Amino acid sequence: MLPEVTAVRYVTPLREGGSLPGIVEADDLGTYVMKFTGAGQGRKTLVAEVICGQLGRALGLRVPDLARIQLDPVIGRCEPDQEVQGLLKASGGLNLAMDFLPGALGFDPLAFEVSAAEAGRVIWFDALINNVDRSWRNPNLLVWHGELWLIDHGATMIWHHNWPGAAAAAGRPYDASDHVLATFGPDLAAAAAELAPRVTEDLLTAVAADVPDEWLADEPGFDGPDAVRRAYVEVLLERAKSIGDRITVGERSKDKPSQAPEWVRVRLDGRAGK
């Protein structure tokens, strides 16, 4: 189970994301980025953050530590922004916190170099969880102490918004043409060989167990939280078996003009010519 803390001070909103996360201080003296159950995307965003964050860490990727965090909306009573006030009032109780990385920089693919091995691991992982939100438009990567950190996994596993079609999602390909690390010559074969065998039923079951029952309760079509957890395990386990063979990088521009900026097209063309 994830550790649990209590928010004691609301510091400031982070307006980069659509869910309006906020920086808070907790009773363990830690500082966290808090994501709220009352945000527009709802509790499934937090479920995705837990499953993907814990899975990524288990696979050796750098993801900020996660914690359950209790919120009393009264801590935001002096917040002047009405949108923030409404979000806090709608999110009383259990929410999700991620360790705040002080001084971290947003990843810029023109300023930071990433090895082919690391790029391959990140893209393979994003293919597994079907992450549609790690593009050159919105990298959702940080550089902290010179190392790459993965954040914001709320827009992953889109099949959990339509469980009747989830089984088919296990076999769908992943187009990484717009992925922010596509220009670094990702070694996808090595990543698949290293990571796929580690995505076991036991690992996925342990990861899903970290999701609080109340975020899985009353899911239509399921008998209870454990049944929902099992559904996540089944899709990810099946997807891990062959997703490495179904990742494409750069092919989109062969069929139609690329929508990527010039620096992306130049890099991709240069990689293809090697």
Score class of each variant (00 low, 15 high):
residue 266 V to W: 00
residue 273 G to A: 15
residue 158 I to E: 14
residue 268 L to F: 10
residue 77 R to T: 07
residue 211 V to S: 04
residue 36 F to L: 14
residue 23 I to H: 00
residue 74 V to W: 03
residue 250 G to Y: 05
residue 164 P to F: 01
residue 144 W to N: 13
residue 128 L to I: 09
residue 135 S to G: 00
residue 58 A to N: 11
residue 217 A to W: 11
residue 90 A to D: 14
residue 230 R to F: 08
residue 196 A to W: 04
residue 25 E to M: 11
residue 219 E to Q: 14
residue 246 R to F: 05
residue 115 S to R: 04
residue 205 T to D: 12
residue 200 T to G: 04
residue 18 G to Q: 13
residue 20 L to G: 08
residue 229 R to N: 06
residue 212 P to N: 10
residue 7 A to S: 09
residue 105 L to M: 13
residue 261 P to Y: 03
residue 47 V to D: 03
residue 34 M to V: 15
residue 14 L to A: 05
residue 3 P to S: 07
residue 53 G to S: 09
residue 133 D to H: 12
residue 215 W to E: 13
residue 247 I to N: 05
residue 258 S to L: 06
residue 201 E to S: 13
residue 207 V to N: 04
residue 21 P to A: 05
residue 158 I to D: 13
residue 41 Q to W: 05
residue 20 L to N: 08
residue 35 K to E: 04
residue 263 W to P: 04
residue 30 G to Y: 04
residue 121 R to Q: 15
residue 66 L to K: 09
residue 246 R to L: 12
residue 93 G to N: 06
residue 185 G to Y: 00
residue 274 K to L: 13
residue 50 V to H: 06
residue 83 E to P: 01
residue 129 I to K: 13
residue 212 P to T: 01
residue 109 P to Y: 08
residue 101 L to M: 15
residue 209 A to N: 11
residue 93 G to R: 09
residue 184 F to V: 09
residue 3 P to Q: 07
residue 216 L to F: 09
residue 236 L to N: 05
residue 227 A to I: 03
residue 87 L to H: 11
residue 71 L to P: 01
residue 44 K to A: 13
residue 231 A to W: 01
residue 206 A to M: 09
residue 86 G to R: 11
residue 32 Y to C: 03
residue 154 G to D: 06
residue 40 G to I: 11
residue 167 A to T: 08
residue 110 L to P: 02
residue 204 L to R: 10
residue 14 L to T: 10
residue 233 V to P: 09
